[in-house]
């Protein structure tokens, strides 16, 4: 059951980097409890769009509103509501999984860090590796730990930038199970992905970001299967 109301709203967000116009008047709404996937070709501005939304980059113009509250530059309160899983893991190679989680837990002012970190490590299947420095971890193990890091602060919005990249089938299944669990708990999720299978499995709505503009949006109702979604994307990208 989807909740009503906007969790995140972008109003005419524009970003210029150097002399390049990366995002052009991007407007978008993410409802409470909704999963929205942003897809688009390489270089469309998806990562910049994410960085602006998370607060890592300041938009040149436009507003970002979270739960009716306009984001001020470096607002700690807003950052606490967002769980950001980026291209990289943001984890320290010399620290153990437990130390990494404790460190981020302290920065995110998480209560009962030890208890939560232990539970999350069990959930992502890294409990037996909790005291080993992560430099020897595989890409899949790093991604699992990165997911645990994001979930530690129990964010209201999950922002996942290509979360399935480099994962084996087992890790993909684990990630999807966690995402679906969060969906049922009412967490709003924004995913950037090139993996259409996963987008079709997880998203309620899909939007195309192409050449810095939101060009098309589709609601993934039961009558839209994967081939149909791919055709829609191919047409939309070819047109613009």
């Amino acid at each position: 059951m989807k909740e009503l109301g906007n969790m995140l709203e972008l109003k005419n967000m524009t970003k210029i980097l150097g002399d390049k116009l990366i995002l052009k008047n991007v407007s978008l709404v993410l409802n409470k409890g909704e999963t929205l996937a942003v897809i688009g070709p390489n270089g469309a501005g998806k990562s910049t769009f994410f960085k602006c939304t998370v607060g890592l980059l300041q938009p040149t113009s436009g507003d970002i509103i979270i739960e009716g509250q306009k984001i001020q530059k470096n607002s700690a309160e807003i950052k606490r509501k967002i769980g950001f899983l980026g291209h990289e893991s943001f984890l320290y190679n010399t620290l153990t999984p437990m130390e990494n989680l404790k460190f981020y837990g302290k920065l995110f002012k998480v209560k009962n860090i030890d208890e939560k970190a232990t539970r999350l490590l069990k959930e992502v299947g890294l409990h037996y590796f909790k005291e080993i420095p992560i430099r020897s971890f595989s890409r899949g193990m790093m991604q699992r730990l990165a997911i645990a890091r994001v979930l530690l602060a129990e964010p209201d919005i999950l922002m996942l930038d290509e979360p399935h990249t480099g994962l084996d089938q087992e890790a993909v299944a684990l990630l999807n199970r966690i995402i679906k669990q969060k969906q049922t708990n009412g967490t709003s999720i924004l995913i950037i992905s090139h993996d259409f299978d996963q987008v079709h499995e997880l998203a309620d709505r899909v939007t195309i970001l192409n050449k810095g503009r939101i060009t098309e949006t589709i609601q993934l109702t039961s009558d839209i299967d994967l081939p149909k979604m791919k055709d829609w994307y191919a047409e939309a990208v070819a047109q613009k």
Binding site: A76, G86, E88, L107, F108
Partner: peptide, 8 residues
């Protein structure tokens, strides 16, 4: 980036 995305 992990530090910068933290609420600090």
């Amino acid at each position: 980036t992990g530090l910068r995305s933290a609420p600090i």
